[in-house]
Design a protein around this nucleic acid. Sequence first.
DNA 1: ACCGGGGTGACACATTTGTGTCACCCCGGT
DNA 2: ACCGGGGTGACACAAATGTGTCACCCCGGT
Lengths: 204, 204
Amino acid sequence: MEKIKVMLIEDHNVFREGLKKLIDLEENMAVVAEANTYQQALQNINDNVDVTLLDINLPDGDGLDLCTKFKKQYPHIKHVALTTYDDAIFIKKAMECGVDGFVPKHAFFDEIKAAILMTYKGRSYLYPGLSTDTIIHLSEPGLTESELNILQLLASGKNQKEIAGQLYISLSTFRRRVKSIFKKLKVGTIEEALTVAIKKGLIH
Amino acid sequence: MEKIKVMLIEDHNVFREGLKKLIDLEENMAVVAEANTYQQALQNINDNVDVTLLDINLPDGDGLDLCTKFKKQYPHIKHVALTTYDDAIFIKKAMECGVDGFVPKHAFFDEIKAAILMTYKGRSYLYPGLSTDTIIHLSEPGLTESELNILQLLASGKNQKEIAGQLYISLSTFRRRVKSIFKKLKVGTIEEALTVAIKKGLIH
DNA sequence: ACCGGGGTGACACATTTGTGTCACCCCGGT
DNA sequence: ACCGGGGTGACACAAATGTGTCACCCCGGT
């Protein structure tokens, strides 16, 4: 039987090494490529790969962007997203980027194995341990690009006037957006919104 | 030769499984205990353990507290802290808690192996890949307990008046503390301070 | 053409936040 | 006893922030 050829994209070296070992010990799969940054992933990807296991939080870029790019250039490759966060907003975003499987890092290897197998066979895989709570929230509205932008700029220490200027919107609109963020994240202050956003990996 | 008996304390299951595999494949070490939460770690620790590899960010508590506790009850056990963050403030705090070795998760397994060996032999191990920049900042003042408290409460969505009341300090003192936080973290807004603090793992 | 929803900007207003100043207290060094 | 530093609280004031209201524009459906 042909082995499933896996590519690992993950910046935590120990984690990647351990994962590689576990996969290589499996009879029906093998790691054929690795990358620990966004840039390296672009270089090391090749036609030979069947499935990628990709960490979404890379130091030099968003793993989901990577997925979008790969989908165009190598449409036959399947992608399993691997992440610390299992929030609804996040899963939704992953799905929109064409991810085939989604597994949080707190899962067991068996589940990653299952995800690789399933996606390889052309089906999609959603981590079964996801709380029903999370599933229910899947239909919740995600933050818009502009809203994420605002959070990112707030996180960098800019004040509201500066940000509004930079985004070419009025202070009024800015504040409307912030209000909208509050409602979507169910928080009451910018501080809390930032905390939640960072924890969910929405901004970096 | 006697094998070094290692305990893994890490909440990311896949990571722990991979690490266990890597360690067990080594000739001179073996995993004899595991835990994926703070509580479990307290239960599963035993006299038989030589070295613990402990993740600092556990879902139900601070891994460094764990270290402090272990030091009292099992003074012979060595501890290697494993963490995503390699910031100066963090390393300093780890050292104060009696950690014997410090390795960031982006390190390679070889470095973890070295840390286990070194600490087992009674020496201390500071990850050699730490930037000189980080080392230089080691002497920088860390945030006080009260300052961390303030950040934590701000992160939870409380406003300044509420927090001052809760901490039994006046608004004046509160604001003085915030100013102090700004200076120490080299930021200009609370938003930025929170972002930095979360990224450095100072608050959760 | 008309209407209504959704997004925008201007403005007003109360509240919160950031900054500085003053006075006080405690404590260790002179 | 005196002084000075460090921490505290009260207050004042400017600036930023949060909230609501109004008017406007665009666009798709009726």
